[in-house]
């Protein structure tokens, strides 16, 4: 099975909606690649700790956030905007249903962890690399100073099948 992981970016807010992930004005694009420069363009955090133009976002392969990520509009453009930026894992306390399904339908990961585990990840200092092991059901975060945090997660069995099949279109074409 495909390996998931890489450099992590932390976005400390709940209820980040898909309008913030990719604004509606870009929904007139008919190629996924065109979304690439606009990921999280309209997201502003009250403490100013997020900059959509940052090098940190460009290098991220894993996004870690709080609860109800991806709420609002059904636009799969939100998932594609992550995907074309090579972010194939989002780790959160919870997800909005449509966004979560869109991630697995594209064969990439929406991983839910307990709030306490999310907090442990947020507490890590410095540069963090995260590895997601689908076989063992473990998320391992490692800092540049060598500190490690390991958390367990459970995937819905059907979502696991979708990841293995490379997405829902492939799965459905084989089965129905």
């Amino acid at each position: 099975m495909k390996r998931f992981g890489g450099r992590a970016i932390f976005i400390d807010r709940s209820d980040i909606n898909t309008d913030e992930i990719i604004p509606a004005k870009y929904l007139t694009e008919i190629s996924k690649k065109a979304l690439q420069p606009h990921l999280l363009e309209d997201l502003r955090l009250e403490d100013g700790s997020f900059d959509p133009a940052s090098e940190e976002l460009r290098q991220a392969r894993v996004l870690v956030t709080r609860a109800n990520f991806g709420c609002g509009s059904s636009r799969e453009h939100a998932v594609w905007a992550l995907e074309v930026n090579d972010i194939n894992v989002v780790i959160a306390e919870s997800f909005a249903r449509i966004f979560r399904q869109n991630m697995f339908n594209c064969g990439i990961l929406a991983v839910e962890l307990e709030a306490a585990d999310i907090q442990r990840l947020f507490a890590l200092d410095g540069e963090v690399t995260i590895d997601v092991d689908l076989e063992s059901g473990e998320v391992t975060a490692t800092t540049s100073s060598g500190e490690t945090v390991c958390c367990r997660f459970a995937l819905n069995p059907f979502d696991r099948e979708l990841v293995a099949a490379g997405g829902w279109l492939n799965y459905a074409d084989q089965h129905y």
């Binding site: 636009r75 799969e76 998932v79 449509i98 339908n105 819905n156 459905a172 074409d173 129905y176």
Partner: peptide, 19 residues
């Protein structure tokens, strides 16, 4: 409401998966 991949499968096969 669904995303575009679900829509593609809906258009093609007339099915959709839910919990």
């Amino acid at each position: 409401g669904i995303g575009t991949t679900d829509l593609e499968v809906g258009i093609l096969k007339g099915v959709c998966a839910f919990r």
